[in-house]
C-alpha cells in the first residue's frame, strides 16, 4: 500500500470518528443538562432515578455499554414486544444502524459525566445571584438563562475541555463493534501490511484534531475572561 492509499483510508476512518464525536457532543450536552436538573431535583423519585442512572453509567465500563447498545436485538426488541404485546423484528442491523447505536451509547455515557460537571457548575453559583434576580421580578427561567447560565459556562469550560478531548480518543472504543472508525482502519492496515507505523500515523490524526480543539476551547475560555465569577 502506498502512503497516499493509507492516508486516504485513514481519512475515511477519521470521518466516522468525527461523526461519532460530533453526534455525541451534540446529544450529550443537552441530555447532560437535563440529567443535571434531575439529580438536583427536590422531587425525590426523579432525583433517585437520575442519580441511580448516573451511578450505573459511570460505574460500568464504556466498552461494555457500547457492546450492550450495539446489540439491541438482545434487549430492545424483546422489551418493545413485551410493552406493546407485539411481535416485531426491529431493523437495527448493519453498519449504519450499529453506528447510530454506538453514538447513543457514547451520548448517554458522556451525558452522565457532563451532568456532574453541570451540577457542580450550577451549584457553585452564589445563591445571591438568584435572589438578585428574584427581587428584580425576574422569572425562574429568566434568572437561569439570563443570569446564571453564562456564569456556569465560564466555570465549566476547563473541566468540559478535558472531557471533550477524552471523547475524541474514546471513539477508538467503537472499534469493538464497528469496523469503520479511524482506529479500526489503522489496525486493519497494520494487519494487512505487517507494518506498525500506520497505527502511529493514525495517532497523529487524533493529536492534530485535539490540538485544534484545544485552541478553540482556550479561545472560548479567553472570550469569557472579561468578567469574574
Amino acid at each position: 500500500m502506498t502512503f497516499l492509499q493509507i492516508t486516504t483510508q485513514l481519512l475515511e476512518g477519521f470521518a466516522y470518528t468525527l461523526t461519532i464525536f460530533g453526534a455525541t457532543l451534540a446529544c450529550a450536552l443537552p441530555l447532560g443538562l437535563l440529567i443535571a436538573f434531575g439529580t438536583m431535583s427536590k422531587f425525590k423519585p426523579l432525583n433517585l432515578v437520575s442519580r441511580g442512572f448516573v451511578w450505573v453509567i459511570r460505574g460500568t465500563p464504556l466498552m461494555l455499554q457500547i457492546i450492550f447498545f450495539s446489540m439491541p436485538n438482545l434487549w430492545l426488541t424483546p422489551l418493545i414486544n413485551f410493552v406493546f404485546r407485539s411481535n416485531v423484528d426491529l431493523p437495527i442491523r448493519g453498519t449504519e444502524a450499529t453506528l447510530i447505536m454506538v453514538c447513543v451509547a457514547f451520548s448517554i455515557n458522556y451525558a452522565c459525566y457532563f451532568s456532574e460537571i453541570f451540577r457542580g457548575g450550577i451549584q457553585s453559583i452564589p445563591y445571591g445571584q438568584y435572589e438578585a434576580g428574584m427581587v428584580l421580578g425576574m422569572t425562574k427561567r429568566q434568572i437561569f438563562f439570563r443570569v446564571v447560565l453564562l456564569q456556569v459556562v465560564k466555570r465549566i469550560v476547563p473541566p468540559m475541555s478535558n472531557e471533550i478531548i477524552t471523547l475524541v480518543k474514546d471513539t477508538a472504543l467503537a472499534s469493538t463493534v464497528i469496523m469503520v472508525d479511524l482506529f479500526t482502519v489503522a489496525k486493519m492496515i497494520v494487519n494487512k501490511t505487517v507494518d506498525i507505523w500506520p497505527l502511529f500515523y493514525a495517532g497523529l490524526f487524533y493529536l492534530v484534531f485535539n490540538g485544534l480543539l484545544t485552541v478553540i476551547l482556550s479561545r472560548v475560555e479567553k472570550r469569557l475572561d472579561y468578567f469574574k465569577v
Binding site: 452564589p126 435572589e131 438578585a132 443570569v147 456564569q151 468578567f227 465569577v229
Partner: peptide
C-alpha cells in the same frame, strides 16, 4: 444586598 449581587457578566 450586603454583598451587592451584581450580575458579573
Amino acid at each position: 444586598f450586603q454583598s451587592f449581587n451584581l450580575f458579573p457578566q
